[in-house]
Structure formats: structure tokens, C-alpha cells
């Protein structure tokens, strides 16, 4: 019986998904063991069935990220936070505390949409259409929002790290990743 695997990228750069694909030809072996449920690599936009494993890339920076992460928790037996953004917020978290800035998020928005010299902004508004999900006051890690079962560090974890971690996850045994594969870059 193949295990069901779901993946998603929240507030990340997609690098973890790319690194996952760096398992290269081993993906052929992986496909003998898993069945992909929702993932940006296919067109399943909702969960089709309950999943054994959910891989999360990225932290939460808007309400939609939070909603998606909760959906994953609800639908996956084992939830794995992949990479620095999911585990610790990663680079985006730098906007949580900008020195001398009372409202860092506001400053980030002003810089991007009002004050840049190449900006033409007739209304002088920051994008605010209801179609855009609300930004959170700050960037949150996955574990601040839901219970996370495992974390695989790295920016991103290498293809080899993914491969080994997946084999442990699929066997359901405790992971024993060698020192060289654990990076906190």
C-alpha cells in the first residue's frame, strides 16, 4: 500500500520543493512507494484523501498561509516542517523586527509601493483589494500555528537529506541523519 504524500509552499521561495526534486532519478523509486495527493507539482488544489505525510515549506505571513497550514494538520498523520522558513521563519522573519521601525510591516510596504523611485502609484494606496489575503502582523513559524511532528533544517535541505529523511519517514522509524546532512545555513 503506497503512502499518501502532500506538499505545499507557504511563505517560502520554492527552494525546498526544488531541492526535493534534486533527489533526481531517485524520484522513480519514490513513486513506487508514495502516491502524491495535493501538491504544487500537480493540479490537486484540495486534499483528495487523508494523507500519511505532509511536507510544509515556508512559514506563515498571511491569513491564507495559516488556513492552508491548518488544513494540512487536519488532513495529515505526520506533519514535517521543511527548511528554515517553516522552522524558524527564515529570511522573511527579518521584517518582524526592523531597528528603529515602529511598524516594520508598514515600512516594508511603503518601501515597495510608495517610496521607490521607479514606482508610479496614482492612488497612493498600498495594494488592498479584497482578493488579496490579509497580511499577518508578523511572520510566524509553522510550530507557532499548529503542532509539527518533525523538522528538517537547511536552506534548503539538500536532495540527499530529503531522500534519507523520506526513507525514514516512509519506514516509520526514528530518523538518524548523519552530521553532514544537517545544515543550518
Amino acid at each position: 500500500m503506497k503512502k499518501r504524500l502532500a506538499t505545499v509552499s507557504l511563505a517560502g521561495c520554492f527552494g525546498c520543493h526544488m531541492s526535493f526534486l534534486d533527489i533526481d532519478e531517485r524520484i522513480l523509486d519514490l513513486m513506487k512507494l508514495v502516491q502524491f495527493d495535493r501538491s504544487p507539482l500537480n493540479d490537486f488544489k484540495k486534499f483528495k484523501k487523508r494523507c500519511d505525510i505532509g511536507l510544509i515549506e515556508g512559514g506563515c505571513c498571511n491569513e491564507e498561509n495559516v488556513h492552508t497550514l491548518r488544513e494540512f494538520r487536519k488532513n495529515c498523520d505526520v506533519l514535517v516542517a521543511i527548511g528554515q522558513c517553516a522552522i524558524m521563519g527564515g529570511l522573511p522573519v527579518m521584517r518582524n523586527a526592523i531597528m528603529h521601525a515602529e511598524d516594520p510591516l508598514r515600512e516594508c510596504l511603503d518601501t515597495a509601493y510608495l517610496n521607490s523611485p521607479t514606482v508610479f502609484n496614482a492612488s497612493n494606496d498600498i495594494p488592498n483589494d479584497p482578493a488579496l489575503p490579509l497580511l499577518l502582523d508578523k511572520v510566524y513559524t509553522c510550530a507557532e500555528v499548529v503542532k509539527v511532528d518533525y523538522q528538517i533544517p537547511g536552506c534548503p535541505p539538500s536532495g540527499d537529506t530529503f531522500w534519507l529523511a523520506m526513507t525514514f519517514l516512509l519506514k516509520g522509524t526514528a530518523a538518524d541523519l548523519p552530521y553532514e546532512l544537517i545544515k543550518y545555513d
Binding site: 529570511l91 522573511p92 527579518m94 510591516l105 516594508c108 510596504l109
Partner: peptide, 16 residues
């Protein structure tokens, strides 16, 4: 319309 729904803010937080 194609909406890009995320915002990160690199241009500001890189300052300093």
C-alpha cells in the same frame, strides 16, 4: 486578473 497574493518586503529589511 492574476493576483499575486504574497508580500515579503526584501527591499526594506535588507537595509542596514
Amino acid at each position: 486578473r492574476l493576483h499575486i497574493v504574497e508580500f515579503r518586503g526584501f527591499e526594506r529589511f535588507i537595509i542596514g
